[in-house]
Simulated scan of single mutants.
Amino acid sequence: MFTGIIETLGIVSNIDRNGGNLDVTIQSSITSELKIDQSVSHNGICLTVVNIESDHYTVTAIQETIAKTNIGEWSVGDEVNLERGMRLGDRLDGHIVQGHVDQTAICISAEEGNGSWEFRFSYDQEANNITIEKGSITVNGVSLTVVDSEAGEFSVAIIPYTYDNTNFKHIAIGSTVNLEFDVVGKYIARLYGFRDIR
Rank of each mutant, 00 (worst) to 15 (best):
A127V: 14
T145H: 06
N178G: 09
A172G: 13
F121P: 00
L179I: 09
G174K: 07
L144Y: 02
N140K: 05
I137V: 11
I108N: 06
N178C: 06
H170T: 13
A127I: 12
L144S: 01
S143C: 09
I137H: 01
A127S: 14
F119Y: 12
F119P: 00
N114S: 15
A127F: 15
A151F: 11
K134Y: 03
I130P: 02
G115N: 08
F168G: 03
D124S: 09
S136C: 10
K169R: 13
V147I: 11
V139C: 04
I158W: 04
N167H: 06
Y163A: 08
E118Q: 14
S109A: 14
D148K: 12
A105L: 08
G135A: 05
V142R: 01
D148Q: 11
E180F: 00
G141R: 03
G152M: 05
D148T: 10
T162C: 02
D124N: 13
I130D: 04
K169N: 11
A127E: 13
I130G: 07
Y161G: 06
N140P: 07
S122R: 08
V156I: 13
G174E: 06
K134E: 04
N140S: 11
E180L: 00
R120G: 12
A110W: 04
S109I: 08
N167W: 02
K169H: 12
F181W: 04
V146D: 02
N167C: 09
N129A: 12
V183L: 05
R120I: 10
D124Q: 07
G141Q: 04
V147A: 12
Q125F: 09
N114A: 15
I173A: 13
A151L: 13
F121M: 01
V183I: 11
E126M: 12
Y163M: 12
I158K: 02
E112Y: 11
K134L: 01
N129E: 08
K134F: 02
A110S: 15
K169I: 05
N114Y: 14
P160A: 05
I171Q: 07
V147M: 10
L179R: 04
E111Y: 09
E118D: 12
G135H: 03
W117D: 03
E112P: 06
E153Q: 13
I108R: 03
V183P: 01
F181D: 00
A127N: 14
H170S: 14
I158R: 02
Y123S: 04
L179P: 05
Y123I: 05
D124P: 03
V146S: 03
T162N: 03
S143W: 05
E126T: 15
T176P: 04
K169T: 06
G141D: 06
V142E: 01
I159R: 07
Q125V: 15
